[in-house]
Simulated assay, not measured.
Amino acid sequence: MPVTRRHALGLGAAALGTPALAQRNFPDKPIRMLVPWAPGGTTDVQMRAFCEAAGKRLGQPVVVENKAGAGGILGAQALLNERPDGYTLSQMPISVFRMPFMSQRPLFDPLADFTYVTHLTGYLFGVVVRADAPWADFPAFLADAKANPGRFNYGTPGVGTSLHITMEQIAGQRDVQWVHVPFRGVAENMQALLGGQIHATADSSGWGPLVEDGRLRLLVTWGPERAKRFPRVPTLKEHGIDLVSTSPYGVAGPKGMDPATLRILDAAFQGAVADPAHMAVLDKFDMPAMPMGPEAYTAFVRRTVEDESAMIRRMGLRL
């Protein structure tokens, strides 16, 4: 599914919306926000704080509805069947921009099938093991995995997620063979790790409290610099692995949203990103605020789709 001029033009049309009758009193009822991850994880906690702040600015509740599974694409998939009236939106993880290029029969076109509203933030990712694991640092884990091909496994939130793809990129750079075990969310992932069913977990910073409590050991983080909460833990780049993975994301709606509705939502969402209660959650999880309006976010999506599709072709990834 190559990126073509038709796709790029479709993305622009989706962002601007098609002519529609203006909704004079939008919103006049609650807004559904699809979160394609399990309750209790980093994204769920962040999105709930964001939605509460957004609801105060819109004068209507923004209600989170979890749709976990399938690597984070179920929210986007659901938008295909929703009216473009602004009352159903979804968090859009980067897996939405990858999955169509990994599938023989794509379910949607990320460049033409959605209206991109507001970009929000990105993650702190890292690899954790149990506190009693034999690996004191990431090089030790890599060395053991390289010496024992296929013996060690790791959990992630799903196939095709940034966690899965980055772990395979690490394996490719270091000639490691390990086994991927996908889970539906952070709760299942952490339970399997603590219970000894998997050796390591690659996930967003929902593991932070368990690391701080001494139950897990954080081996490495994947950001451009060390995390504020874990300044002693090196990044991948410090270990000579030339990768940075933060998986930025935002909020989108169905294609063809009315521009007036889009402006109302974006104004409220930009304010919600900067809301002190929401910023406190971002700080708790070491997540940077990365607000972008519809035009900048749409341009970002276009670049991301081009980069991700090229990476998938290069790695030969298929579902």
Rank of each mutant, 00 (worst) to 15 (best):
R5D: 15
R5Q: 15
G17N: 11
Q23R: 15
R32I: 10
G41Y: 01
T42M: 04
A53Q: 01
A54F: 01
G59H: 00
V62P: 02
G71R: 08
L74Q: 12
G75I: 01
A76Y: 03
A76C: 12
A76F: 06
L80I: 06
M102A: 13
Q104W: 02
L107Y: 00
L111I: 09
V127E: 10
V129W: 03
A131L: 08
A136P: 07
F138M: 05
F141G: 07
R151Q: 14
N153M: 10
G155P: 02
V159P: 05
I165L: 14
T166N: 12
M167S: 14
Q173R: 15
D175N: 15
L194G: 07
G195V: 07
H199T: 14
D203G: 10
G206D: 08
G208I: 13
V211G: 04
V220T: 13
H239F: 11
D242F: 02
T246H: 05
P259N: 10
A260Y: 12
D266N: 15
D266Q: 07
A267S: 14
A268I: 06
Q270L: 08
V273H: 01
P276G: 05
P276H: 03
H278P: 06
V281N: 00
F285H: 11
M287D: 06
P288M: 06
P288F: 04
P291C: 00
M292W: 08
T298H: 03
E306D: 13
S309A: 15
I312K: 11
R314D: 15
